[in-house]
């Protein structure tokens, strides 16, 4: 990897260069919660000053920009007993993601495995994913963050450049030639030994700040062993089955498909809607049989898919430890607590 040092004011120049030709999406502050803590979300930005590079976890991932909650897969023009079908992947220009944390970049990398790397790659995702310029930014772990446990606390791939705040300067990791070319147009310098020392100091301090942890040792086997465990009922009784965990997850990609006819009956649409495996009819088949009628079996399936099935298929968990699901869950169901209880820990 190639590294550079830039002065702080140069980052704004880089932003201007990127923003002059493309839409930029970045973390912005939208208000305060009931504890007076700032609320962050990903939004389209036009000014560098709107971006909060020091943001803690956003409530929602930037998913709406790469895996929209609702997206038309196909449109039909009806012609009596016949019809024409048209398909649009809904991406016609590149987007810049300015200020993604390592967990969210790793979320892309893991989604890529199933949505791009498997058979039947998904063009709707590919169109957006292949037209991204990603500027990563370092972060300080919050109380819900356990990305380190999930091997997602550093991003090794899947971005263009990554920015770490060294105090007076930024340390830049350059991954793509596109990023390299853009950086030629601002002032950069080679890092010196002192910059490396400072960088490593920041990283090691960050590692000590994690409060939440998940023990993933032999987790795939343990989930198999504990498939009949009573602990699932404990969590199932708490679960609201509201789907929030999936909706705030940067890697949840499960969906539903609905077809609708226009009011004039002349056209029809096939629409994909992100779904959640905790919703009652997730595994209901035609005729009404439901393979997972109880909340506990659906919640269990969720853990089973993310922490076992995906690992088996792609040698990586489908959880990046961003902690959003635990933070958003009104019933206080968090991944560290659930996994710990499955491993026999007290609840």
């Amino acid at each position: 990897m190639i590294f550079r040092i830039i002065k702080k004011e140069e980052l704004e120049k880089l932003f201007e260069l990127l923003a002059s030709g493309s839409r930029v999406i970045g973390p912005v502050e939208t208000g305060h919660d009931r504890n007076s803590d700032p609320i962050y979300e990903f939004s389209e930005v036009s000014n560098f000053s709107e971006i909060r590079l020091d943001h803690t976890m956003t409530k929602l991932p930037a998913k709406k920009y790469f895996l929209p909650y609702k997206e038309d897969l196909a449109a039909f023009h009806m012609k009596g007993r016949d019809w024409d079908k048209s398909v649009d992947y809904h991406c016609d220009s590149p987007s810049v993601f300015f200020g993604l944390h390592a967990c969210d970049i790793n979320a892309f990398n893991r989604l890529d495995k199933v949505l791009l790397g498997s058979s039947y790659p998904m063009p709707y995702y590919a169109a957006k994913r292949k037209n991204m310029f990603i500027v990563g930014v370092d972060c300080v772990p919050g109380p819900y963050c356990f990305c380190r446990s999930m091997g997602a606390d550093t991003a090794l791939q899947g971005f263009d450049l990554f920015v770490t705040d060294l105090g007076k300067t930024y340390f830049i990791e350059i991954l793509s030639d596109t990023a390299f070319n853009f950086l030629k147009r601002i002032k950069t310098s080679e890092p010196v030994e002192a910059d490396h020392v400072r960088y490593m100091d920041i990283v090691s301090k960050k590692n000590m700040k994690f409060e939440a942890h998940v023990d993933t040792t032999d987790l795939t086997k343990i989930l198999d062993m504990e498939f009949q465990s009573d602990i699932w009922k404990y969590w199932g009784d708490k679960c609201l089955a509201c789907g929030t965990c999936a909706n705030v997850c940067p890697t949840c990609y499960c969906y539903s498909v609905e077809e609708t006819v226009s009011l004039d009956l002349q056209s029809a649409k096939k629409t994909r809607q992100l779904y959640s495996c905790n919703i009652i009819d997730f595994a209901e088949v035609s005729g009404g049989h439901n393979f997972r009628p109880e909340r506990q079996t659906r919640l269990k399936y969720r853990y089973y898919h993310k922490h076992r099935g995906f690992v088996e298929a792609y040698e990586d968990s489908l959880c990046v430890g961003c902690g959003r699901c635990g933070e958003a869950c009104l019933a206080d169901i968090t991944v560290p607590k659930v996994i710990s209880s499955v491993r026999g820990g007290a609840v």
Partner: peptide, 11 residues
């Protein structure tokens, strides 16, 4: 829909 308002609210 069988699901609750949270699904739409998050979307």
């Amino acid at each position: 829909p069988k699901y609750p308002v949270c699904m739409e609210c998050k979307a």
